[in-house]
């Protein structure tokens, strides 16, 4: 496999309209999507990810039903974009190749296939289908803090051998400290760097997203995720507008217009935010205890329903080692905590 040529020094992929779907409780409207795509496209963003927060096919009781069908949103995004292209997320076990084909029909040209960091061998079916469709491929090794750098590199190898052009160190819990992130970037680059790009997806739960993005670039990572206003799960993602400003200061060419991104964040995204992702107690506990960032809103809802603190639910989820996709266990934990309180 030959490595994809880069348009700029580093490729910034914006996930406001995918990871941000978590913070929006999966209720993005078509108008919000069109406005956001237009702004990102105008600011020079090359790839824009659009789908349910848990990927195509994620609309469900377990993760939340989409307010607007994601295929409608993908098609609207595709229509609005002039130079940018549309990516989607697919989590095997939740979404299927059928969902991917629908997304491709709606205009998606990249898929990001996401597995837990030790389970990459559920992804080859989806990479093969994506390559058959002529789509560009990215692989998300989620909850990357849950395994060591050497094993993470082996998992990246599985994805690359299956047709993945860019495996990602995906810090779903926002848990990776700078030296931990660096060790993982170096391990992946050593294993697959000759034939694939390597990427980084950060969360701000411990405020590390932007700092780790700089380390990522320094070590040779060339695909980095951001979200306008940090809109994403937990306390959100590395803000795209901050990445643009920081890389500009570093003299790294991202191809992005930092001023236009600041305008997009301030004038387009901020007005529709229901919550501005922030480092509050619950989100910090997620980074601290290594909990999947998307659990946040679900834990808050269960906390209200069962009258137990959300941060205790999240901490327990960390202790029990729950992984992305196990949102149902949040209710189970809340019921258990409520019973413990009633019993004491």
């Amino acid at each position: 496999m030959t490595k994809r040529a880069l348009r700029n020094d580093v490729r910034i992929i914006d996930t406001t309209l995918r990871d941000g779907s978590h913070a929006m409780a999966h209720r993005f409207t078509e108008t919000q999507v069109r406005d956001t795509v237009r702004a990102l496209d105008g600011a020079g963003v090359e790839w824009i990810e659009v789908s349910h927060g848990d990927g195509v096919g994620g609309s469900s009781f377990n993760y939340g039903f989409s307010g607007t069908d994601e295929m409608t949103l993908i098609a609207a995004a595709r229509e609005e974009a002039r130079q940018a292209r549309i990516a989607v997320l697919l989590v095997p076990g939740i979404g299927t190749v059928d969902d991917l084909k629908r997304a491709h029909d709606a205009g998606a040209e990249m898929v990001r296939v996401a597995t837990h960091c030790t389970e990459a061998d559920v992804s080859p079916q989806h990479f093969a289908a994506a390559r058959d469709l002529g789509m560009e491929t990215v692989g998300f090794l989620m909850m990357a803090h849950r395994t060591d750098p050497a094993d993470l590199a082996k998992q990246a190898r599985i994805m690359v051998d299956a047709g993945c052009e860019c495996p990602y160190v995906t810090d779903s819990a926002g848990a990776l400290l700078m030296h931990e992130a660096r060790a993982r970037f170096e391990a992946l680059l050593a294993e697959v760097g000759d034939e694939a790009l390597v990427g980084y997806h950060g969360h701000q739960n411990l405020s590390m997203g932007v700092a780790n993005s700089v380390i990522a670039y320094e070590t040779g990572v060339r695909s980095i995720d951001g979200s306008l206003c940090a809109l994403g799960a937990g306390s959100g993602n590395s803000p795209t507008e901050v990445l643009a400003a920081v890389f500009d200061r570093l003299g790294v060419d991202t191809g992005l217009d930092a001023g236009a991104l600041l305008d997009a964040a301030e004038d387009v995204v901020r007005p529709y935010l229901q919550r501005w992702p922030k480092m509050d107690r619950n989100a910090i506990v997620q980074g601290w205890a290594g909990v999947y960032s998307s659990f946040l809103l679900h834990a808050e809802r269960a906390a209200e329903r069962y009258k137990v603190p959300a941060h205790e639910i999240l901490r327990r989820c960390g202790e029990l080692g729950y992984v992305g996709g196990q949102e149902d266990m949040i209710i189970d934990v809340a019921i258990g905590l409520a019973a413990e309180r009633a019993g004491s």
């Binding site: 469900s60 377990n62 076990g93 939740i94 837990h116 030790t118 389970e119 559920v122 849950r146 029990l320 080692g321 729950y322 992984v323 992305g324 996709g325 196990q326 266990m329 189970d332």
Partner: peptide, 15 residues
């Protein structure tokens, strides 16, 4: 239907 694989040790009982 949704399926999730969890690698936690000791292994989790099916839920």
């Amino acid at each position: 239907a949704i399926i999730v694989l969890n690698p936690v040790e000791p292994p989790m009982i099916m839920r």
